[in-house]
Amino acid sequence: MTANLKTTYKNQDAGQIYLRRVDSGIQVYGTLTNLPSDSLLNINIYMSGACINRGKVAGGYLNSTSAPLSHSRLSFSSPSVIKVNRQGIAKVDYITTDISHKKYRSNSVYQQAFVVYPIPVDDKDLSLEKTNTRIACGIISQY
């Protein structure tokens, strides 16, 4: 599976994320570009699979039962924080057992959305309104 991400404000290519089955689960990996330089950002899978309106309609976090997660537990048991270098490039690479690449499973990520967004500064920033700034978005599809 793959997701081609675009920035939400300038609609620039922001790279690709790939998902593949490995012995220990699903590997999520790729390189993202055109991100705010020297920053820490979150990347999570959202359940509506929509990137319109600057990614604001992507829904809530997806978990293994296809229900949104609370902000206190970011998606899956995997790293959701990415470090962006001076050139605006970030690497994503982790393995998770919380998602499925199969279309008809309850924890399937097929046609869901990867969303990149700022890390909340403190607990007061965890409200949906404050974390709703989406930087990049891409729909997961098969290749």
Rank of each mutant, 00 (worst) to 15 (best):
V84Y: 02
V84T: 02
D98L: 03
S108Y: 05
K102F: 07
S80T: 14
I89W: 07
S70Q: 05
Q111I: 07
I95L: 03
R73H: 14
V84A: 02
Y104R: 11
F114G: 00
K91D: 13
T97C: 00
Y104P: 05
I99T: 09
T97A: 13
H71L: 03
S106P: 14
Y94T: 13
V81S: 13
D98C: 03
Q112S: 15
S106G: 06
R86Y: 09
S100D: 08
I119F: 01
K102T: 15
S72G: 06
L69M: 07
P79C: 04
N107E: 11
P68N: 10
Q111E: 10
I119N: 04
I99M: 15
L74E: 05
Y94M: 05
K103D: 09
I89Q: 09
S106M: 08
L74A: 13
H101L: 09
H101N: 15
I119E: 13
S100R: 12
V81A: 09
R105C: 09
Q112I: 00
V81I: 15
D93Q: 04
L69T: 15
I95W: 05
T96L: 06
Q87T: 05
S100Q: 00
I95E: 08
I99S: 11
I82C: 12
G88R: 11
T96E: 03
S70G: 15
Y110E: 14
P79Q: 10
S78P: 04
V109M: 10
V109N: 04
S78I: 01
